[in-house]
Computed example of a mutant assay.
Amino acid sequence: MSTPDDAIPVLRLDRARTPEGGFDPTFTTALREALHEVGFLRLTGFGAAPGQAGALLAAASSFFDLPAEQRLELDNRRSPHFRGYTRLGHEITAGRPDAREQIDFGPELAPVPRAEWDEPFRLLEGPNVWPDARVPELRRRAEAWAELMSRVGTELTRAVAVGLGLEETHFDPLFDGEPHWFGKVIRYVGPPPGDPVPDDAQGVGPHADWGFLTLLLQDGTGGLQARPPGSSWTDVAPLEGSLVVNVGEMLEVATDGYLVATPHRVLACAPGTTRQSVGFFWSPRLDARLDPVPLPPGLAAQAPGVHETDRNALLPRFGDNALKGWVRSHPEVAARHHPGLVSSGTPSPFTDR
């Protein structure tokens, strides 16, 4: 069962600061409470240009409507950096295939030669793969969206810091240089018309995000659900002109569990229908380590520690946590390009999920 969608708060980012330029305590308190009590909120007034979100979703639709052989020109199995197009049913969440296809992208970087890696997570640095010959507007619109989301992520990160009783710039050093955000342009696909939805079907299975903050653009279809602490599955209903914001594992680590990376999922689409979204995962540099911040005593008393299990340890250095997530979600890519990271029957932080 789902509880009413008004359990998911709505905040306006354009009201985050006072005319004097500082953060409004009303906003930072509401932000902190939403991310502590629910782990999710819906954000409006975040600065998108008129029509920007719709144009991005339209470009994504143009790509997903291409014939399969043309989509596979971007096959992510060719990318050692986990970039490009993932075929329907070939991303794994909670140990099962998701009913989605997508393009993964991130900061456009030259690959680091394997001989020069200081850490295995350097394999995540590399070029993106775009359908420039087929849908040239997708790259342009996705890159413009990533620029906007980076600004939103920076502002929210600073607001979170103030809400936790810290200096506004407390987290800035973790993002200095080359923050390793990543994006997903996603289409969920239901069974053919007339076919039943299998009982075990999932758009995306229950999981928590491994970054710092997630900023999600969803269309009006619905199907996203969150499970706040102590609650049942809750609909995160679409709200026109909004982003869905949720806590990632890195922010949970940094607050010793005061802010929680709430589990969430996407229900399978009905037969003959699809759903589109664009996820943006705001994250620090790969080498950034998220140590617990000094919380005020009243907040520290409500920090239960991180919610990890023997099947999903939360790793404090972001690159380690990100690499763990990519290897688990895309085992075909990992096995093809990085077999040394794939467990051979023994427990591993990268594959035991």
Rank of each mutant, 00 (worst) to 15 (best):
T3S: 15
T3A: 15
P4H: 07
D5C: 09
P9E: 06
R15K: 11
A16I: 03
R17D: 11
E20M: 12
G21H: 13
T26Y: 01
R32C: 09
L35P: 07
H36K: 07
L41Q: 04
L41S: 09
T44W: 02
A48T: 02
G51M: 13
Q52E: 15
G54C: 00
A60C: 14
A60L: 13
S61D: 15
F64G: 12
D65G: 13
P67I: 10
R71F: 02
R71I: 00
N76I: 13
R77K: 14
R78Q: 14
H81Q: 13
F82G: 01
R83S: 06
G84L: 07
Y85Q: 01
T86S: 15
E91L: 09
D98C: 11
A99Q: 11
R100K: 15
E101Y: 10
I103T: 04
F105G: 02
E108D: 15
E108I: 02
A110K: 13
P111C: 12
A115M: 00
D118G: 09
P127Q: 11
W130T: 05
P131I: 07
D132H: 12
L138K: 06
A142M: 14
W145C: 12
V152R: 04
G153S: 08
E155M: 05
V160H: 01
G163S: 11
G163E: 05
L164T: 03
E168A: 15
F171I: 02
F171M: 09
F171A: 03
F175T: 10
F175R: 08
D176F: 09
G177V: 05
H180R: 08
I186W: 00
D200C: 02
G205Y: 11
P206T: 09
P206E: 12
H207W: 09
A208P: 03
G211D: 12
T214G: 11
L215M: 14
L216E: 03
L217N: 06
D219W: 09
G220T: 10
G222W: 07
L224D: 02
Q225K: 07
L243G: 06
G248V: 12
E249A: 13
M250F: 03
L251N: 04
E252D: 10
A254E: 01
Y258K: 01
L259H: 09
R265D: 01
A268P: 13
R275M: 07
Q276H: 15
F280P: 07
R285T: 14
A288F: 03
A300F: 08
Q302P: 02
A313L: 15
A313G: 08
L314T: 01
R317K: 11
F318W: 14
S329M: 11
H330E: 09
E332T: 13
R336K: 15
H337K: 10
H338E: 04
S343I: 01
S344G: 13
T346F: 01
T351S: 14
